[in-house]
Every structure is written in structure tokens, then in C-alpha cells.
Design a protein around this nucleic acid. Structure first.
Lengths: 333, 333
DNA sequence: GCAGACTTGGAAACCGCTTTCCGGGAGGTC
DNA sequence: GACCTCCCGGAAAGCGGTTTCCAAGTCTGC
């Protein structure tokens, strides 16, 4: 590989000068030398060694983002938002996928720390395990002590800047909207009990029903994905309205209904959460709670990068969800 | 940040020994010292500085992958496959999204080169612009001269190892299957003419029709995304069967039909390409050509990493698509 | 014409780690 | 016991940049 020294030699200048010309310095370099250096670099096809730059500068130009699964449109949208924001700052993005393994998440924080990334973004639901969470916090603390910045999309459990979707409030609003349609017997496809996002949505929904004096919903736990929704949908009892705690599960539930000859919304109403863009053309159109996922991802990155004052209390931004009623629910007679 | 030197000092050993203990060396270190070093590292919370390691070792443990858009499930699946493969090799992944800007793609290759990533994966369609392609090839050549490895998912136009989906053959097979159902008047929602993937699929489809002695299809160009399909769907003339060159466009077309009261498949049959997993529950179920996207991503990474012989001719692996007939098409009377 | 302020180029220290090369001690052989 | 290995620890030379510190001009203003 051609190094800066090669360029300097070819241009007949010192290393220092070559560095100043090519890799953005505050120092001025005369037009003649500047041209010579640029020409040499071009001829030689010089590409700065970023590892060396990072080492010398003590700061890298990459950020890390840790998600569960890129093929889940929820995380893809979050990641996309964050990546666009990163790109405008000229930052590169290193992505880690955990596939919902909390150990992986911790490991990634350590790795990102080793990479000395400028900031790390943790996107995705926490699990309700204080031990695991504790270890994650520890690893994060270690990272931040070294000057790293961190932010999180999801529950405010990590002591870092957080973009927190209003899962509870959103689910509650949805419950009220659904109740407003005349439904009284509900089921919740609740996802795994340890997953905080899922649990919060479930809780918010149930609380709202309680507040309205309606009966408790049937709660069916299962996986947080399409198949989880599909399976859970078979156990909804005599509910007239089922709330799947995310859109992907709702789509699974819809599929299950279809296969079993249950019409939606005529026989049962179905609602989800997130308003996944890729699913907007689903038939029947899914009632859901819209979350501005891209913005949330972008905002989280801003938070991580912003605020020079590391010692300040972490800022938590709550983002509201908007209930979107579509064809998958119907008004009861 | 705590450095290796701090650890060495605390453990009362030399830098060399500490390095050997902590960062995988072939050299043995005695049990006593080894324990001392590990203890010190743990107490101090040492995290190796990967930039320094990369510099010293002359090789990094990250790979780069360049895609158009992570929120497009096609690329998400490809990326996911590649990332899983990378993870099993203990490699980190740097992701760049170009949003279909070829300049961005070239820029990313340069950047990845600067990062000295072990390999870069270019996923996504080439554009039919020899100038741009030439510059990309140049940039790739530069990278590979420096020892970088590269692979590509898509058309074999870059002179690197390639996983090439059989776009033409797949579309042709689809055309024959559709013709076998009795259709004779076709339309193709063809995407942008410069996009090679789109063009190949369109061409393969038309050729097959020609081979069957059927009339030329109506070809409607447009964007390669959902909205492109949506818009193009309004110009299909009197076709009884429309082929959207990818699933996402097909979904857009389906939406357009629905809004205009055109029943699918009763009034018109619709087919796509890719068999996007997220769309499998779409109603009506989409007829399509299945591509093993995750495997393709993984395979491309293997290709990039494998084959020690850089000078060998690039290997091109063709991967076939499988026609999957579903509800969105019907047999003509 | 000259002191003082500015500008610009270069030498060299340093960033944190890997690894080569050396040397000393332990263990084996005859 | 002498000689050879083998094993393991440390000193130090890089890896490819950045940046500080100097020194030598180049301008100003008087």
C-alpha cells in the first residue's frame, strides 16, 4: 500500500507537509507544495490509513449501532434513520446484530469500545433481567469513562440518553380507540413476558381497558415475530378484538385468521403497533400505532453525538405514538 | 483510556508479555504471569485499542458492505446473510448505504479502502453507465492492489467474485409459467431502464414471450420501488397479466389495482420477483420468483474472504430463481 | 533599513499495539 | 558436568499517521 511517506517523497516534501495537505489540518500550505503533494497523491493512488489516523488523532469517525435483526423492518427503519444522520456528519457506521441475545449486546458494546467508536446506539427492547441489564450498564459505563458516547432507543433503563417510544401510552390510546368502536372482549398477543417493549404495550393496553371498566383481556404470550403472532392467534378465545403488540405479529395473526376462515374485521378486529412502512399495503390494512421510526433513529444519533457535557443527567425524549385506524378493525353493532 | 502499558505496569510485566496474554499470540506465557496480566486487565477494565492493533498487525477484522437501502427488504436480507457469515468468522461489519447513487458507491469503496477493511461486498444492481462502472472498477482495482478482497451480488460487471442471480432466466421461467396459464397479453412494470437488474428481468421476460410466439408485452418504466409499481400499474393497457420486476413494485401495483377496483387475480394477474419474506403474508399472495437472498449474501462474503489466489480469474456463481405460483395469478378460461 | 509579527516547511515525538530478536534459565542427553 | 535445546520474558523497532516545536523566510510599520 502506498503510504503518506511515499507521497511525501514523490512530492519532495516532508511527511508533515504531506499530512497537512491531504488530511485536513488547520495549517496552511503554500500553493506550489500543495499542488505537488496533491498530484503525487493522485498519481500514486494514495488512500489514508484510517487506523493510523484514528490512532494518531485519538478519535475515530465511526459510530456503532446495535440492533436485534436487520430483516425486521422495525430495526431496519431505526438503523436507516440513524445511518442517514450519521452520513450527514460524515461518519461511518458499524452495525452489530444480536438476534435478541443480550450477551451479544454486551459483547458488542465491548467491541465497539475496543473500536473506539465515537458513539454507540443501542436500539431495541431491553429484557427484564436485572443481572443482564446491570452488566450491560457496566460495560456502557466503562465505555463512557473512556470518552465514548451512547444513546438508546427504547426503555430508559441504561442511564444513557434515550429516545423512548410511548409504548404504554400508545397502547392505551389504541385500547380506548378500540373500545370506542364498541369492543369489549379483547385479547392481547403479548410477545415474550421478559421483553420490556412487549410488556409495556401489553400493560398499557390492559390498564386502559381497566380504566374504562372493561373486562381484562386474554393475554397470550409468544415470540415477538410473525410466527409468534401466527401461533398466538389460535388462542384468543371469544375476543372480538385482538391487539398484537407489534405489526409483524399482527400480520402473522391475520394470516392465521385467514387460514382458519375467520374474517377480519367482520369476525374479529386486529390491531398492531409500529406502523411498519413495508406493511402499509397489507390487506386488510392494519390498524396500528404509528411510531416515527426513522426520526427516532436519527434523533438518537443526534443525542449520542450532541451534548458536550457528559456528566449531565441523561436526557430522555419521549415520542408519542399516533393511533391509526384502518380496515382491520370494525365498529361493533 | 487504560492502555496495554498500564496493564503491563500494574501486572509488573513487560508490554510484550501483556500483549501476548491478552491479544492472542502464538507464543506461550507462563501461568503465573498470565494470571497476573489477566487480573490486572480485568481490574483496570482494559479494552484493546483496535485501531492500534490494526495498524500494528496490518490487517483489520472488519468487512464492508455497501447496499442501496437497508429498509428495502431485498437488501436487508442480503445484508443479514452476509452479516451472519461475517459474525461466524468473528468479523465486524461496516455498512454503507448509497440510496442508489453510484457516486456514493464509488466513494464508499474508497472509504472502505481507507479503513483497510478485509473485504468489501457490493450488493445491488449496477447501472448501465460505462463511465461510472469504469470508475468503480478503478477504485476497486486500487483497493485490491492493496490486498483488499471484494465480491459483488448482482451482475458480473466488476471483475470481482460475483454471486449472480439468474434474473433473465428466472423472468423467462416466470413468463413461461404465466403463459402456461393461458395469458397472452402481458405488461411489464420494468423499473428504470438504466438499472441492469430491472432491465435483465424485463428482457428475460420479453424474450421468453417472443420464444412462445406471443405478442410483445407493454413495458412501463418507473421507479424500482413500491411507488414506482403503484404508478406504473395505471398504464398497463389491456394486459391480463402484469409482471413487476420486483416484489415491492408488485405490492405497489396491487395497491393501485385495489384502489381502482380492479380485482386480482380475477381481472388481472400480477407477479413479482424476489420472494421477499416480509411480503409472504400479502393478500392476495404474490406469485414471484424466489431468490435465496440470505444465502446469496452469505455466499458472497465467503467468496470475498475465500480463495487465497487473488490473481485467479474471478469466480461467478449463478444462482437460480424458483418460480412460485400463488394467488395473485389465475388461469385464463 | 530594521525590529517584530506572521507565515510556512521540516524534524521528531508520540498514539497503542505487535513482533522480531536476544538473552537467560530450565531441562535433556551423553 | 559440559553442551544443546527449548521455553519464556523483555527491549525495541516498527505500523502510518498527527502535531508540537523550531527555524527560516516574508511582511509590515516606522
Amino acid at each position: 500500500m502506498v503510504t503518506l511517506e511515499d507521497v511525501a517523497k514523490q512530492a519532495g516534501v516532508s511527511l508533515a507537509t504531506a499530512s497537512r495537505v491531504l488530511n485536513g489540518s488547520t495549517r496552511q500550505v503554500g500553493a506550489t507544495l500543495r499542488a505537488r503533494v496533491e498530484r503525487a497523491a493522485d498519481e500514486l493512488g494514495y488512500r489514508a490509513n484510517i487506523a493510523a489516523q484514528t490512532l494518531a488523532r485519538g478519535a475515530s469517525n465511526v459510530i456503532g449501532i446495535v440492533v436485534h435483526d436487520l430483516t425486521d423492518p422495525y430495526f431496519a427503519a431505526l438503523a436507516d434513520g440513524a445511518m442517514r444522520a450519521a452520513a450527514t456528519e460524515g461518519l461511518l457506521v458499524m452495525v452489530g446484530t444480536t438476534h435478541r441475545d443480550p450477551e451479544q449486546e454486551i459483547a458488542y458494546v465491548a467491541t465497539m469500545n475496543a473500536q473506539r467508536v465515537r458513539a454507540v446506539l443501542l436500539a431495541g427492547s431491553r429484557v427484564a433481567d436485572p443481572v443482564v441489564t446491570g452488566r450491560l450498564r457496566e460495560e456502557l459505563a466503562r465505555y463512557r469513562e473512556g470518552g465514548g458516547r451512547a444513546a438508546c432507543v427504547g426503555q430508559d433503563l441504561l442511564g444513557v440518553d434515550t429516545v423512548a417510544p410511548a409504548n404504554r401510552a400508545g397502547a392505551a390510546a389504541l385500547a380506548r380507540a378500540l373500545a370506542g368502536l364498541g369492543h369489549t372482549r379483547f385479547a392481547v398477543l403479548a410477545g415474550p413476558p421478559q421483553l420490556v417493549t412487549a410488556a409495556d404495550r401489553c400493560k398499557g393496553f390492559a390498564e386502559a381497558l381497566r380504566g374504562l371498566g372493561l373486562p381484562e383481556p386474554v393475554v397470550v404470550h409468544g415470540a415477538f415475530d410473525r410466527d409468534g403472532g401466527y401461533r398466538a392467534a389460535t388462542e384468543i378465545g371469544d375476543a372480538t378484538c385482538v391487539f398484537a403488540v407489534n405489526d409483524v405479529m399482527a400480520v402473522g395473526a391475520l394470516a392465521a385468521c385467514r387460514e382458519r376462515g375467520i374474517r377480519v374485521p367482520e369476525d374479529v378486529s386486529v390491531a398492531g403497533f409500529d406502523d411498519i412502512v413495508t406493511l402499509r399495503d397489507h390487506v386488510p390494512a392494519l390498524t396500528t400505532v404509528r411510531l416515527p421510526l426513522k426520526d427516532m433513529g436519527a434523533r438518537a444519533l443526534e443525542l449520542a453525538l450532541g451534548g458536550a457535557d457528559v456528566t449531565a443527567a441523561p436526557v430522555v425524549e419521549h415520542v408519542a405514538g399516533e393511533v391509526v385506524l384502518r380496515e382491520s378493525v370494525r365498529r361493533m353493532a
